[in-house]
Nucleic acid binder design. Structure first.
Lengths: 345, 345
DNA sequence: CTGAAAGCGCTTACAG
DNA sequence: CTGAAAGCGCTTACAG
């Protein structure tokens, strides 16, 4: 069944049927009624495919995340779909699984899809092929918004969080309550969140006259693979161990916590700990960790809203926007350490 | 740029270009080379939309989950996309947010999309409108596979887990180590997982000559909304409280655990606890809970494989398949209780 | 092995 | 306010 069947049944032309369906152009009230009746009686649903082909508008967008299993991205997705559902967009979902080649494949396949826009959480912040593919997509008139992670070599719209400010606030707080030796597990330095969070740490130390010490710096790839677990042990075995630790994402926090617990250290007493990104599940286990938090669903929603704006404007002339979402420090006691309690204000 | 541009450039007809792109029909080697060269030089990507319209094959499928924020579904999604990526399908993602009206909207919108198939995790197991919409979709030749939850009134393919067997094994184990008074928080009884898991509990008790007691049964809607938290308190305040509790999903386990911890009870000592579905995060907090576990990614992958099979067969004559994935009991000590240690074998 | 042409189901100027 | 017709970019018998 197609638009011709409806036209015949309602005794009008397909142009008229199209007009009532899309509310494009004028239709006499009585004609509209007839057409609507025919549509209802025949349970007609217009073909989105045919519509897309002739109108050159798919109303589809693509969302690419690096790891849907990380609750952070599940939350982002919730925020995004909460907006799309209201504006009638459909969402193609892709999980790159933190694999750069997989991302390339996805982007390549997307070229033929005629999408209105893409929200991308890049796997790597620095990757020529990603940039090349994104530029091809952009040239095909698909709007692009970056989320959380940046993409060097590509000036484009994005929604990020105040990674620097969040880390700075956390470390500054640790200093204010008396910590002087603060360790950090930093993320990849070629990635915006990894770099900015580390810079926030460095700046907070400097502003308080504390030297940055190599041996208090651990590094990992933001994954859940035991790196932070091992490094936590190593860093605490040093002759002059830190009294507090700062981790750069939720996975790092989990591993660090596990490591401390396995060493029989009491978090918030024997050692202070603040993470980046809150971990809900821990509240139910009464093991909450202080954290730099942000409204992740809002980030997703903002990204979608920005994308929609870009699609509407379409003019390449429009200034690219970088939206930065605030973070806030949530303190729950895990930041404390008895060893330095005397200094606390 | 379209297929005509390529045809012109390669000095062949569009039919030939189409043949080399799709490897449909014979093409002389030298001709193929010419066409491929033209495609490469012009950076041509065929339009998936136009292709879909003329071939009546979108190669798109839809995935509808009730709540992407629940790690269970994030995992399912991982399993699904791990298969789709290999077979060139694109995935429309929808999050119903446990809202039945939202699901109806989604299903309705999907009618025009010409999907090859849908994997559905229904919001409710019993809902006439869902069934009606699914049947309409089925009539439009879209393949359907149910996941985890069932849909009454609809005979269709599905991938489930052995809810009954898993619950039975858990409760039987509790009995074997000496528990006689075992409480349960059961899920919605109109839902397959809710009902089957409760039946497993009932059967295990009966088979061991233990009476099912109303006052040891709590009920909730599988959501994270405080119901189980409150009921745990209430059930333990009874004159003759249970020595062990069984929860019917991961959210219930979290709330129950929190409630027990807030009452200063030591899980695995003062009271036994087994949940349904494992909660990874708790391992990092050294608060692991024994659980009925299942290979969720595999469930997702199986669902996608089954869907693919249905799409390929297409014949409505093919028998509907209900695949049931095994569960296994993972014991970590939380099931124990000192009060009944004497009975343990 | 290759091409001409109809058709997929819509939208959209254009004419009236 | 309404309709005839071209066009969106492909695929697919059919003919040769």
């Amino acid at each position: 069944m197609n638009i011709y069947d409806i036209a015949k049944k309602a005794n009008v032309s397909v142009a008229t049927v199209s007009r009532v369906i899309n509310q494009s152009g004028p239709v006499r009230e009585s004609t509209r009624k007839k057409v609507e009746k025919a549509i209802a009686e025949m349970h007609y649903t217009p073909s989105a495919i045919a519509r897309s082909l002739s109108s050159r508008q798919t109303n589809n967008i693509g969302i690419i995340v690096p790891d849907i299993f990380n609750p952070f991205y599940a939350r982002v997705l919730t925020g995004i779909t909460r907006v799309t559902r209201d504006i009638g967009y459909n969402t193609f979902f892709f999980n790159a699984e933190e694999n750069i080649e997989r991302l390339h494949q996805i982007l390549d396949a997307l070229k033929g899809q005629n999408l209105n826009g893409i929200i991308l959480n890049p796997v790597l912040d620095q990757d020529e092929k990603t940039v090349r593919l994104m530029k091809e997509l952009e040239a095909m008139n698909v709007a692009i918004v970056l989320l959380d992670r940046d993409l060097r070599g590509m000036n484009c719209n994005g929604v990020f969080s105040d990674d620097f400010g969040g880390a700075y606030a956390a470390v500054e707080h640790l200093i204010r309550i008396g910590h002087r030796r603060i360790g950090i597990f930093r993320g990849p330095q070629q990635s915006r969140p990894g770099y900015e969070r580390f810079m926030g740490y460095v700046q907070a130390l400097r502003d308080n006259g504390i030297q940055v010490e190599e041996e208090l710096i651990g590094e990992y790839d933001f994954m859940l693979n035991g790196h932070v677990y091992e490094q936590t042990k190593r860093i605490l075995r040093k002759k002059n161990p830190p009294t507090a630790l700062f981790t750069s994402n939720n996975y790092g926090t989990l591993e660090c916590m596990k490591s401390l617990l396995d060493m029989d250290l009491c978090i918030g007493k024997d050692i202070g700990l603040i993470g980046f990104d809150d971990i809900d599940t821990l509240h139910y286990a009464n093991r909450s960790i202080s954290a730099v938090d942000r409204d992740v669903e809002r980030m997703g929603a903002k990204a979608m809203t920005l994308l929609q704006y870009c699609i509407a404007e379409k003019a390449e002339e429009v200034e690219k926007q970088k939206i930065v979402i605030d973070t806030h420090l949530v303190l729950r006691g895990s930041e404390k350490c008895d060893m330095i309690a005397a200094y606390a204000d």
